[in-house]
Design a protein around this nucleic acid. Structure first.
Length: 295
DNA sequence: GGTAGACCTGGACGC
DNA sequence: GCGTCCAGGTCTACC
């Protein structure tokens, strides 16, 4: 069955898919051209279905490999709206970047949206698994969690949904640590899963809270394994762009761009984008580093 | 508040 | 093939 969902325009599905590496982390899949996004979704009814998303007209069309009830269709639409940020409005950002050569491309390419998972829990676990490791390590760890603990897709058991907190909360830490290769991150993921599963942490409420960004950031920093980089990354996914996710790559890029290759720290990266105010994070995210510089 | 060391893994490198 | 070194953020202990 097919579901059609409209988007705030301009909208580009391929821009969302290419916004960062999330599309290559299980249970996401995409094609080389970034024109198709697939995701194995787990619905609140426990149904597992594969969503195949293409751009169509002023929005997207979602092909589902199963017949869904009305309630399930509504849930899938909500998940896709959130994942693709279909209702996000970037007109203020576009007005600001119009005269900045390093950012003017975002208007033409309809950039601004950052691909996210249906739940903040999944985004938080994946973000923790990006820290202190290579991108290949992140892919391997996420794939390990999904393939071992995720609920299988009935039509193709090789494809699985991302495990829910309850599934991860029941895992023994030592097997988690070794079998999934999470290493010292295992207790962080486990503690987060157990806090969410027990109801002690209502992570999903942070997606819709009206709390100011600083307060939101403090709540994210209270999660073990989430430091300043991970918190800024999660804030970006939540639509708060006041902080730059400063990692080694950011320091390297800012160093080449403004400091003649000299070593720079978090303060210099933050300062470089200070002028972009509440859009600081997005300005960094979509900055064209290749513009006469070295990547 | 700032800093050093530990955490874990994979990849690069030298032998 | 084996051993060593390094990169990648966060936490904790210490000053």
């Amino acid at each position: 069955m097919n579901l059609r969902i409209s988007a705030w325009n301009p909208f580009s599905l391929s821009a969302v898919i290419a916004s960062h590496g999330w599309a290559s982390l299980a249970p996401f899949e995409t094609n080389e051209e970034h024109t198709e996004l697939r995701y194995v979704a787990r619905l609140s009814t426990d149904r597992v279905a594969e969503l195949t998303i293409h751009q169509a007209g002023d929005g997207v069309i979602v092909a589902v490999n199963d017949a869904l009830s009305d309630g399930e269709q509504a849930e899938v639409k909500d998940q896709v709206r959130w994942m693709l940020g279909l209702e996000q409005d970037f007109s203020d950002f576009y007005t600001l970047v119009r005269d900045e050569p390093r950012l003017a491309h975002v208007i033409e390419r309809a950039q601004g949206r950052v691909l996210r998972c249906p739940t903040l829990f999944e985004d938080a676990v994946k973000t923790i698994l990006t820290t202190n490791t290579s991108w290949g390590g992140t892919i391997r760890m996420v794939e390990g969690l999904v393939s071992r603990f995720g609920q299988p897709l009935p039509a193709n058991p090789a494809r699985r949904a991302f495990p829910i907190p309850e599934q991860l909360a029941a895992v023994d830490e030592s097997s988690f640590r070794s079998a999934e290769g999470l290493g010292y991150r295992a207790p962080y993921v486990l503690e987060l899963a157990r806090a969410v599963a027990s109801g002690n942490l209502d992570l999903e409420s942070l997606r819709t809270t009206d709390a100011p960004t600083d307060e939101l950031r403090q709540q994210l920093l209270a999660i073990k394994g989430v430091g300043s980089y991970a918190a800024a990354n999660l804030l970006m996914l939540l639509g708060h762009y006041n902080f730059v996710p400063v990692d080694s790559w950011a320091r390297k890029m800012v160093s080449y761009e403004w400091y003649d290759g000299e070593t720079v720290g978090q303060a210099e990266v933050e300062a470089a984008f200070e002028g972009w105010g509440e859009w600081k994070g997005l300005a960094y995210w979509f900055w064209d580093w290749s513009y006469g510089g070295e990547a």
